[in-house]
Write a protein that binds this DNA or RNA. Sequence first.
DNA 1: CTCCGCCCTTGATCCATGTCAAGGATGTCA
DNA 2: TGACATCCTTGACATGGATCAAGGGCGGAG
Lengths: 247, 247
Amino acid sequence: MQDMMVPDMKDCSDCPIRHRAVCARCDTAELALLEDIKYYRSFAAGQTIMWAGDRMDFVASVVSGVASLTQTMEDGRTQMVGLLLPSDFVGRPGREAATYTVTATCDLVMCCFRRKPFEQMISSTPHIAHRLLEMTLDELDAAREWMLVLGRKTAREKIASLLAIIARRDAILAKNAEQNSLAFDLPLTREAMSDYLGLTLETVSRQMSALKKDDVIILDGKRRIIVPDMDRLMDEAGDDSDGGFLS
Amino acid sequence: MQDMMVPDMKDCSDCPIRHRAVCARCDTAELALLEDIKYYRSFAAGQTIMWAGDRMDFVASVVSGVASLTQTMEDGRTQMVGLLLPSDFVGRPGREAATYTVTATCDLVMCCFRRKPFEQMISSTPHIAHRLLEMTLDELDAAREWMLVLGRKTAREKIASLLAIIARRDAILAKNAEQNSLAFDLPLTREAMSDYLGLTLETVSRQMSALKKDDVIILDGKRRIIVPDMDRLMDEAGDDSDGGFLS
DNA sequence: CTCCGCCCTTGATCCATGTCAAGGATGTCA
DNA sequence: TGACATCCTTGACATGGATCAAGGGCGGAG
């Protein structure tokens, strides 16, 4: 799993899906193919990119910013089922309609590929299909890891788990991994956190305050988080594992 | 998703992964290949097939019975992250160690394939890789569906969701789908249900009694369930969707 | 600068579910 | 047949997190 986290761009720095999506071993012919079908789109914070059930004729990779996948019940209860960070992939080859609502939780740039040609490319280039399979398996692991968080952890552990995941991911992208003290900006509102954790906004706020009081985190404003001791945070998360990566 | 549920065996009734796993379009050469690397294993109810972290040198498909994938925290809290019903696939090509503990929840037969040759076969037969990708995407959808259950549903809704999923899956395998009244045997103890739903055993028991009192289900003994009205059950589950299928 | 709206915090109270405890039903083995 | 183990049910009580409610802080628009 580790090697998925650092995009390998050395051989194709212009590959439009150099982000985690496909990357690594693209050859020139594939690059040309991809170049032909890609386009970029930007979204403002809070903007909904697509609604569950919408026809979806592209797949995409997050270039910068954060997006969320959510499910909503008839009565309005909502659950976030995936958080898309830079290098994450969204969209399902072979499926016409979006299964989840996709929303930009902060300003966002995506690199999109028209679906039909992308699917053709997959059928004709086995190693890209293989790469997609690996990615999907990683997402499945992350989703299952999250099931443990949702089903069995306390509110405090849930918050710590979320912070730990974002901190670690952030550190890796910034090449700061291995440091025990980290600082980062939360890309989520308290409400978005509550939707991800299966809590209410108030409980999230209270537990953030509690973690702050206990010196597990330091808050600089509302969104800037300093983690003086990652090991301590992981401990609070009740986490022995290396932490699933958000879809 | 629908078409995944009914194994398509018409062209290869002897294909050892005729269950949902690969199925459908195997040609003779592949059959021979598979035949060469497969073997069957049986397990008794309650038996653990492998522990998280164990070296795993096979992948497998459930022939009969039910198995569960579980994660456990250091302090013993456990969460089931997948329920493997007949035709489900377990194991991850390319991964040496098991990520989850796999346990037989009732007597179980699996059809196993040695991992290395299986991986080779995947690389050399693109449509099998493609099939695996589709399956994995379905499992991902199921896992995300379950995140909504774990994060946002009440105990009563959780129970109804689980019963609805098992009932529907059972009906499909028995070619009874479309009927509004169904009967089936629960393949899980109350404790296994609680591990899947993120509840305690006692809460599961109480909510089963409540659903019985309200005529949503009829209990014949402890394990035999009769659902007089599937629509009613789905309604109790708070479920608009067609219900994710357990991995 | 001031007002407004959004996001966040905190308090008081309630309730769904967890926890602890007792006992019932069913199947197995001697 | 009786003793025992396993699985399940039910009751009494505790509590974590939800709900309802009030207000603080900050950034953007005028």
